[in-house]
């Protein structure tokens, strides 16, 4: 099971990363970029629990930190994604999944990412952080995250059920 779970998580994270970096960022949507990678991480955390959520969040965040089109300090996104993977995995009982709650958690996490990234950036002295843009980014990121969650959460839980049926209680 571990091998299949690892392969599934890796493929999903890489596909989400590539789709986000070369498609969603270029759509030119107003405000934030739809954070497909974070939504995928949280959807995986919902099904596999907090520990896997944290590890997948760490890996996905590192991949985004090292991606050639990003320029922030390495490790910041990994830190935020790790915490969010853990918290959303711990907050939801896999046997009692309530779809509106799941979508709400995803939307709020995407919004919280904006605040967390800007906050850490400010603490580390990143001159690029512009708090005036934060409210717009926060609202749009929450909205896009929730919308993506509507599609990604069912898709991930179907994939998980097919590939690692043992994980579904």
């Amino acid at each position: 099971m571990w091998a299949r779970q690892t392969v599934l998580c890796t493929i999903l994270v890489f596909a989400a990363l590539v789709t986000q970096q070369s498609f969603l960022t270029r759509l030119g949507l107003p405000g934030a970029t739809p954070d497909l990678l974070l939504v995928t991480v949280i959807a995986l955390a919902f099904t596999y629990g907090p520990l896997t959520g944290a590890v997948v969040g760490f890996g996905a965040g590192m991949a985004l930190d090292f991606a050639p089109s990003t320029a922030g300090p390495i490790g910041v996104v990994a830190l935020i994604f790790m915490v969010m993977g853990f918290v959303s995995g711990a907050a939801v009982d896999p046997r009692d999944r309530n779809p509106p709650v799941l979508i709400g958690i995803i939307g709020l996490s995407c919004g919280a990412f904006v605040i967390a990234f800007a906050g850490i950036g400010s603490i580390l002295g990143d001159v690029r952080v512009d708090w005036e843009q934060a409210p717009t980014l926060l609202l749009t990121a929450t909205l896009y995250g929730g919308l993506l969650g509507l599609a990604v959460v069912p898709a991930v839980s179907i994939l998980v059920g097919k590939i690692t049926p043992e994980a579904v209680v």
Binding site: Q21, S22, T33, S69, G72, D126, R128
Partner: peptide, 15 residues
């Protein structure tokens, strides 16, 4: 241009 950095990181970078 291949890819653009995400807007919530505040950086304007492209690949």
């Amino acid at each position: 241009i291949l890819a653009v950095g995400p807007a919530q990181e505040f950086a304007w970078t492209v690949t």
